[in-house]
Amino acid sequence: MEVRTIKVFTTVDNINLHTQVVDMSMTYGQQFGPTYLDGADVTKIKPHNSHEGKTFYVLPNDDTLRVEAFEYYHTTDPSFLGRYMSALNHTKKWKYPQVNGLTSIKWADNNCYLATALLTLQQIELKFNPPALQDAYYRARAGEAANFCALILAYCNKTVGELGDVRETMSYLFQHANLDSCKRVLNVVCKTCGQQQTTLKGVEAVMYMGTLSYEQFKKGVQIPCTCGKQATKYLVQQESPFVMMSAPPAQYELKHGTFTCASEYTGNYQCGHYKHITSKETLYCIDGALLTKSSEYKGPITDVFYKENSYTTTIK
Rank of each mutant, 00 (worst) to 15 (best):
E2S: 07
V3I: 15
T5S: 09
I6L: 14
K7G: 13
F9Q: 12
D13G: 06
I15A: 09
N16V: 07
N16I: 10
L17F: 15
T19N: 14
Q20P: 07
D23F: 15
T27K: 13
T27S: 07
Y28A: 05
G29N: 10
F32Y: 08
T35Y: 05
Y36N: 06
L37V: 14
D38N: 12
G39K: 05
G39F: 12
A40H: 13
A40F: 11
D41Q: 15
D41F: 07
V42N: 10
K44S: 13
K44F: 11
I45K: 15
I45V: 14
P47N: 05
P47V: 09
N49W: 07
S50E: 14
G53L: 12
K54C: 13
K54Y: 15
F56Y: 09
Y57F: 12
Y57S: 09
L59E: 13
D63E: 15
R66H: 13
V67Q: 14
E68M: 09
A69I: 10
F70H: 11
F70C: 09
Y72E: 10
Y72R: 13
Y73V: 02
T75K: 08
T76S: 10
F80D: 04
L81R: 06
R83Q: 08
Y84W: 04
Y84G: 03
M85Y: 15
S86T: 11
S86D: 11
A87C: 07
A87R: 04
T91Q: 03
K92S: 10
K93Q: 10
K93S: 13
W94K: 01
K95M: 15
K95V: 11
P97K: 07
Q98N: 11
V99S: 06
V99T: 07
V99N: 06
G101P: 03
L102K: 04
T103N: 04
S104W: 02
W107V: 03
A108V: 09
N110V: 03
N110I: 03
N111R: 04
N111Q: 04
Y113L: 04
L114P: 01
L114Y: 03
T116V: 13
A117E: 04
A117N: 01
L118T: 03
K127E: 13
L133S: 02
L133Y: 02
Q134K: 13
D135Y: 10
A136V: 02
A136F: 09
Y138T: 14
Y138G: 14
A140G: 04
R141N: 13
R141T: 12
R141W: 07
G143W: 02
A145V: 05
A146I: 03
A146V: 05
A146R: 06
N147I: 10
C149V: 08
A150K: 02
A150F: 03
L153D: 03
T159M: 09
T159W: 08
G161D: 03
E162L: 03
L163T: 12
V166W: 03
V166M: 09
R167F: 05
E168T: 15
S171G: 11
Y172D: 09
Y172V: 11
L173G: 01
F174Q: 01
H176D: 03
K183G: 04
L186C: 15
N187P: 01
N187V: 14
N187R: 13
V189A: 11
K191G: 13
T192K: 08
C193T: 01
C193R: 03
G194E: 04
T198L: 11
T199L: 11
G202K: 06
A205K: 00
V206T: 05
Y208P: 00
M209A: 15
M209N: 12
G210H: 02
T211Y: 05
Q216F: 05
Q216A: 12
K218F: 04
K218Q: 07
K218T: 06
K219W: 06
G220R: 02
G220D: 03
C225K: 00
C225P: 01
G228A: 02
K229E: 12
Q230D: 12
A231E: 01
T232S: 08
K233P: 01
Y234E: 05
Q237L: 13
E239F: 12
P241C: 06
P241A: 09
P241K: 10
V243S: 01
V243P: 00
M244H: 02
M244R: 05
P248R: 13
P249H: 02
P249S: 01
P249A: 01
A250E: 09
Q251S: 13
Y252G: 00
T258F: 07
T258G: 09
T260S: 07
C261H: 00
A262L: 00
Y265A: 00
T266Q: 07
T266Y: 09
G267W: 06
N268E: 11
C271R: 08
C271T: 08
G272W: 00
H273W: 01
K275F: 00
K275M: 05
H276Q: 03
S279H: 04
K280D: 08
Y284C: 10
G288D: 00
A289W: 05
L291A: 11
T292W: 07
K293I: 13
S294N: 12
S294W: 13
Y297N: 03
Y297T: 01
K298M: 11
G299R: 05
P300F: 15
P300K: 07
P300G: 05
D303P: 00
F305L: 09
S310R: 13
Y311T: 07
T313E: 13
T314H: 09
